[in-house]
Simulated scan of single mutants.
Amino acid sequence: MAKDLAKDYKTKSDLEDALIETARRPLALRTYAHYWANTGSQQYKRRTFDEQYDMLAKDPVEQAKMTPTPEWLKALIQDEDIMTIATMNKGDTALLVTGDANRNKFQVIPGGGFVTTEIKLPKNWNELVAPLGYQPIENYYLKATFNKDEGKASSAGKSKKQPAAGKGQRPQRPQKPAKPVKK
Rank of each mutant, 00 (worst) to 15 (best):
K3L: 15
D4C: 09
D4A: 13
L5C: 01
L5N: 01
K7Y: 08
D8G: 12
D8C: 11
K10A: 15
S13C: 08
S13V: 04
S13D: 11
L15C: 07
L15F: 12
L15T: 07
E16R: 05
A18L: 09
I20W: 05
E21C: 06
A23L: 09
R24Q: 12
R25S: 00
R25D: 01
L29T: 00
L29M: 06
R30M: 10
R30H: 08
T31M: 04
Y32R: 10
A33T: 07
W36C: 11
W36D: 13
W36R: 06
A37T: 08
A37P: 01
N38I: 13
T39A: 13
S41N: 15
S41Y: 12
Q43P: 13
Q43E: 15
K45M: 13
R47G: 03
R47M: 14
T48K: 06
E51D: 05
Q52S: 09
Q52Y: 03
Q52D: 10
Y53C: 00
D54R: 09
M55I: 02
M55T: 04
A57Q: 15
K58R: 14
D59C: 01
Q63H: 12
Q63I: 05
Q63R: 15
M66C: 07
M66H: 07
P68W: 02
P70L: 07
E71S: 04
A75V: 00
L76Q: 05
D79K: 06
D81T: 11
D81C: 10
D81A: 13
M83E: 09
A86V: 08
T87F: 03
M88C: 05
D92H: 01
D92E: 09
T93D: 06
A94Y: 07
L96Y: 01
T98C: 05
T98E: 02
R103M: 11
N104C: 03
K105E: 06
I109W: 05
G111P: 06
G113K: 14
F114W: 12
V115G: 08
V115A: 15
T116Q: 13
E118G: 03
K120V: 11
L121K: 00
K123M: 11
N124C: 05
W125S: 02
E127Q: 05
E127M: 02
L128F: 00
V129L: 00
P131W: 01
L132T: 03
Q135N: 07
I137F: 03
I137L: 11
E138F: 04
N139E: 15
Y140S: 07
Y140W: 08
Y140V: 08
Y140P: 06
K143T: 12
K143F: 05
F146R: 14
K148N: 01
D149G: 07
E150W: 06
A153S: 12
S154R: 09
K158G: 06
K158N: 14
K158Q: 14
K158V: 10
S159R: 12
Q162Y: 10
P163C: 14
P163V: 14
P163A: 15
A165M: 14
K167H: 07
Q169G: 02
R170P: 00
R173V: 00
R173M: 03
P174V: 00
Q175E: 14
K179A: 08
K182T: 04
K183T: 00
K183H: 00
